[in-house]
Computed example of a mutant assay.
Amino acid sequence: MTGALLMSWPATNAQAAVPGPSGKPSAGPAVTAVQTSGDVSAKRKLHVRCEARLNQPHRSKGKYHILFKTRVKCKGYGANFVHVKVRGQLIRGHYTPEQKVVATSNQTQSIAVNGKQATYYTPKVKGKKIKASGYYKGAVTVRITSPVPGSSAAVDTGTHYVP
């Protein structure tokens, strides 16, 4: 897998992680906060951190169209589930001036905190099919949307040739 990012809820400054020397993504910072409910005497600690990891663009098994996956896992306390929105772009082209978005996705899933990871596909499973060989990269913006909105974070896979 390439690319990773962390986002926290409540969050202030989520940062995308950058690949380390081994080529594996390094982790970014986590943010912890105390959320005060309507009753000032009842303080509830809330902290949820989600990590998104992207696969390089590749051909799907059997269908032979090009896609990439974003896998999101959330850990923390103060909430059982969070809704996470992932907006993805499959971009074709080797260099910036020639790069063009050829497929997109916009999906929100409910993810159990301290549970299983969720997988998002770009393009969506029943979305546009891209079949031409070439240089591609995947890019996503990820955001915890509820129970309380968090900050968004963005990351991409870097450009890779897909035969």
Rank of each mutant, 00 (worst) to 15 (best):
T122K: 05
N114A: 10
A139W: 03
T159P: 00
S133I: 00
V140C: 09
K116F: 03
G127N: 13
G115A: 07
N114V: 10
A139E: 14
K131T: 15
K124E: 14
V125M: 13
T104A: 03
T141Q: 13
V113M: 03
S152C: 00
G134K: 09
T157Y: 05
N106E: 14
V148M: 12
S152H: 02
K128D: 10
K137P: 00
S133Q: 11
P149F: 04
V148H: 06
Q109K: 15
S110M: 14
V148Y: 11
S133M: 05
R143S: 09
Y135T: 04
T122P: 09
P149T: 05
G158W: 07
Q109T: 01
G115Y: 03
G127R: 13
T108E: 15
T122I: 06
A132F: 01
V142T: 12
G127Q: 14
V102F: 09
K131C: 01
A103C: 10
D156K: 04
T145K: 07
V155G: 01
G150K: 03
K100M: 07
K128P: 07
S146R: 10
Q117E: 15
P123L: 12
V125H: 11
Y121N: 14
R143N: 11
V102E: 07
G115D: 02
G150Y: 02
K126W: 03
T108G: 01
K116L: 10
G138V: 03
S151T: 12
A103K: 09
R143I: 10
T141C: 01
V162L: 09
G150Q: 03
G158L: 07
P123A: 11
N114Q: 12
K129Y: 03
T122H: 06
A118H: 05
D156R: 06
S105A: 14
A154S: 15
H160G: 04
K131N: 08
S133D: 15
G134H: 08
N114L: 09
Q109Y: 11
G115T: 02
P149N: 01
V162K: 06
V101N: 10
V140A: 12
T108Y: 02
V125L: 14
N114C: 11
D156F: 04
K124I: 04
T104I: 12
V142A: 12
S133E: 12
G134N: 07
K124C: 00
P147R: 06
K100R: 13
V102I: 14
V102R: 07
N106F: 02
T159N: 00
A153R: 11
T157G: 03
I111F: 06
H160W: 12
V162T: 05
P149W: 01
Y120R: 13
K100P: 00
